[in-house]
Design a protein around this nucleic acid. Sequence first.
DNA 1: GCGATTTCTTGAAACGATTCAGAATCGAGT
DNA 2: ACTCGATTCTGAATCGTTTCAAGAAATCGC
Lengths: 334, 334
Amino acid sequence: MVAASVRDVAAHAGVSVGTVSNVLNHPEKVLPETVTRVRGSIRTLGFIRNDAARQLRAGRSKTIGLVVMDIRNPFFTDIARGAENRAADAALAILLGDSDQSSSREGAYLDLFEEQRIHGVLVSPVGDITPRLEKLRERGIPAVLVDRSSADGTFSSVSVDDFAGGQMAVEHLISAGRKRIAFLACSFDMRQVTDRFAGARAAVASHPGVTLEVIEVESLTVIAGRIAGQQLVERPVGDRPDGIFAVNDLIAMGVLQALVMRREVRVPGDIALVGYDDIDFASAAVVPLTSIRRPGALIGQTAVNILLEEAADPALAPRQVVFQPELVVRESTL
Amino acid sequence: MVAASVRDVAAHAGVSVGTVSNVLNHPEKVLPETVTRVRGSIRTLGFIRNDAARQLRAGRSKTIGLVVMDIRNPFFTDIARGAENRAADAALAILLGDSDQSSSREGAYLDLFEEQRIHGVLVSPVGDITPRLEKLRERGIPAVLVDRSSADGTFSSVSVDDFAGGQMAVEHLISAGRKRIAFLACSFDMRQVTDRFAGARAAVASHPGVTLEVIEVESLTVIAGRIAGQQLVERPVGDRPDGIFAVNDLIAMGVLQALVMRREVRVPGDIALVGYDDIDFASAAVVPLTSIRRPGALIGQTAVNILLEEAADPALAPRQVVFQPELVVRESTL
DNA sequence: GCGATTTCTTGAAACGATTCAGAATCGAGT
DNA sequence: ACTCGATTCTGAATCGTTTCAAGAAATCGC
């Protein structure tokens, strides 16, 4: 059985294809009894719109693309969720891609989106994709940066003040009496990371006698954090930091695990620990984790809002929305 | 600037539209020098295929739909990741939807997919969607159930032996000397839940003197688990279970948090705890969590494989792949 | 009763890529 | 010289929807 088309419905209901289309899209323009008759035919024939044809005619899809850096980081699923809920209100779907921190996968998704003449793109970029986004914009596809502010302000963005976040984290460690602080991170080419680092440095700079050490980890994952933690434990006692600021909660949880596993290091006794993002699991960690909260769902939702406005009016000036992070104190620094 | 079409490319390169299309899809049928010339024009004009037009002609999209029950449960992001990686190999994208355990949202996604004439559907169903999937099948859209076996075997599925998992979990609690076991769950209309419960009952049945209590929680989330845990703590000591089997790790982590928060209950001393799924965070919990591991990524990957085979040959008999779960023992039951 | 409106409906013309039967060209074989 | 086959290219037809100018019918005012 071939799927029924508007033509079949029109024939069955004894009207023209134009009328069927109007029933579907502008029912107020059609005589009520015609509407019911056509709707009846639609039901009996099991007609379902062919979205490809509709898009072809419309020139634009009803889908928003979202490319995140790491789908396994709950912070990004929070963003996705926020975006999805807001998009659903506007009868748009979200096409979610995980770039897995690879520029090439990121590019592949953007290519795909371009072929789809997607409604708009949300992206938490890995590399510098401004030129790529310019190309999309030329095609009439708006883009909003998520979790990163636009370097030159040519694109709208929704982000968090990571400098403030980093500063907040380290100030908190210092106010808890910590002097030898370590910053655990990787991907120092990522703005998010450098901003947090800059914030951390600023905090240290205003407190003489406090030092900041940088420890590079493999990746932004629990496993990588665990490895870093093991290396810390292997250091001679006097050589260990007494406060750690991890660039995200995944790493923080990994470190925490490694520290606590061998009983010789106490958290927060010997080492206090601050994470970043305040993912749901942070409060359920071995030692409940102090963290810098970022409003993931709100970010996703806001990004979709901006995207929709820009899609409606491409001449709109780019906007930079910056949310303030919030310190959530738990046992890991008490 | 309007986007260039095949027609523009054809004019620029001095060939017909058919040739341009052949360069795109069957370059071996075109003279090499023509190919380079056309490719040159494609580049200079910045031509990008219009996927909607292509799909309209092809009658089918290059996208696979995936509907999960809860995107914030890492188990499902693992599935998504496995599926995505496998799909990328086949040059297909994944359209990810979160039904949020709502049948209506689930249905909305399936409707969307049907309009898109999607290549195939993977779904971890909330309600009974067999009739809905039959409809899709009639339209030539194959579906594979994920994390649930097909009730009547009319659809392929990739799942885990949840009876065995439940049994394993409770046997383990019993062998750790626990006598008063509680099963924490909700959504008893879900097959996954009832199977685990049945497994738990079977384990209890074969050990006289061991009791099984069912405690219903609000939802399958950390928060719901925390609430249940608080209620447990408020019980008089003798009335508390000494072993808990939580239907998933999110709930287990919530319970764990609540139990450990007030220092009166020790885990595993007073209450041993087993979760389900073995999400990444389970090992990083307050007390590292014993759990029943399910191979999420593998499930996603396998589901895509089956889907692709069925898409290629719709006459293929449905297949039920069942993976065996695995007990991962950690401190919460030691 | 008649033109002017308003209300519904019609059907052909897009949208842009793919396909496929047939045209054009060239060599080889007889 | 002519046929046959292979290779390459052509361009009209097609997919299914939406749009829109124009037609038909009903309603209104006077």
